[in-house]
């Protein structure tokens, strides 16, 4: 009998935390309680996110959920999924990740001594604002909270000002007008109750973030064969279930926001096209310094989606 700690930095009701708990339950059932996974949510184990590749590699937690773009500072290849306006919807993201997967698996196992159990998306990142945004022109002058490099570059490109505030200061900053908009996805908006301080939601799918759940290779290899297979099999099941579920979660969370007074502004085709054009440099700049596998993934993906 063994008991493993598992880590999620997201709040307990976030879908990735719920997913990890489901995963733990299923594993417990499949192994007749021989492998128990204790999930710690909300960063209760003291981890913040960017360090998690190393954390799982060193076996500090045998299993952890991690935001791929969060840990991509350690592994440049992973940055491909953070490029803005590269994928337009969940379908394209899944296509991209299918191309990525063999390369990601290799990087995770060879360099980071861990095995990817499943990869699952967040709802796409949109703009949550005080005023309605329908054209590129209207994005100019926004004071937007962004959370990473590419988000900042996008806002910079459209003539808005990106502010990298810590999340704990976003709410009060919106209240006081220090910022007037936030780039994020529906679950975060619901977590932070943005309807108390914001009015509009523009679902632009600027990026669609993805999390992966990995297991320390050494811990994995020490398990009896049947438990190993159970982990992999349940990982696959989870992946499918999460991909099926997330579009629904996105809609549900959006509905919660709407019910509380946020108005969804369906994005104009022209706005999206303009945004794709204006952010082309961001993607090209990344490609210039990307590892060869990254370039290969990019061109394979472009071929596949015929762009």
């Amino acid at each position: 009998k063994s008991s493993w700690n598992a880590n999620s930095v997201w709040p307990p009701k976030n879908h990735h935390s719920i997913g990890l708990n489901d995963f733990a339950d299923k594993v417990k059932k499949a192994t007749n309680g021989d492998l128990e996974i204790v999930v710690h949510t909300g960063g209760a184990l003291g981890y913040k996110g960017p360090e998690l590749l190393k954390t799982v590699r060193d076996g500090l937690v045998p299993i952890s959920d991690m935001l791929i773009s969060g840990v991509a500072g350690d592994e440049k290849l992973f940055q491909i999924v953070t490029l803005p306006f590269l994928v337009r919807d969940f379908q394209e993201l899944r296509t991209l990740l299918e191309i990525c997967r063999p390369y990601f698996d290799k990087a995770a196992e060879k360099k980071w001594k861990q095995k990817i159990l499943y990869i699952a998306p967040w709802p796409g990142a949109g703009l949550w604002t005080k005023k309605k945004i329908t054209t590129l022109e209207e994005m100019k002058g926004l004071k937007t909270r962004t959370y990473d490099k590419n988000g900042a570059l996008v806002m910079d490109a459209v003539g808005a000002t990106p502010h990298a505030l810590p999340f704990s200061e976003v709410y009060t900053s919106l209240q006081t007008g220090l910022i007037d908009s936030v780039m994020t996805s529906t679950p975060t908006a619901v977590d932070a109750k943005f309807w108390e301080v914001l009015q509009y939601y523009q679902p632009l799918n600027i990026t669609i973030a993805t999390d992966m759940v990995t297991v320390n290779l050494n811990s994995f290899n020490k398990l009896p064969k049947d438990q190993q297979n159970a982990l992999l099999k349940i990982g696959k099941e989870m992946e499918n279930a999460m991909w099926d579920n997330v579009p629904k979660i996105d809609k549900d969370q959006e509905a919660i926001s709407n019910k509380n007074g946020i108005v969804t502004v369906a994005p104009d085709k022209k706005l999206i096209a303009d945004l794709e054009k204006i952010t082309e440099n961001i993607r090209q700049d990344w490609l210039k310094t990307a590892p060869p596998e990254g370039k290969k993934i990019y061109s394979d993906f472009m071929k596949k989606v015929k762009r």
Binding site: P11, S168, Y171, D191, A192, K193
Partner: peptide, 13 residues
């Protein structure tokens, strides 16, 4: 209150 609001899904305001 911020930490509790986010973890516990409670209005920070």
């Amino acid at each position: 209150m911020l930490v509790y609001g986010i973890i516990g899904d409670v209005s920070i305001g």
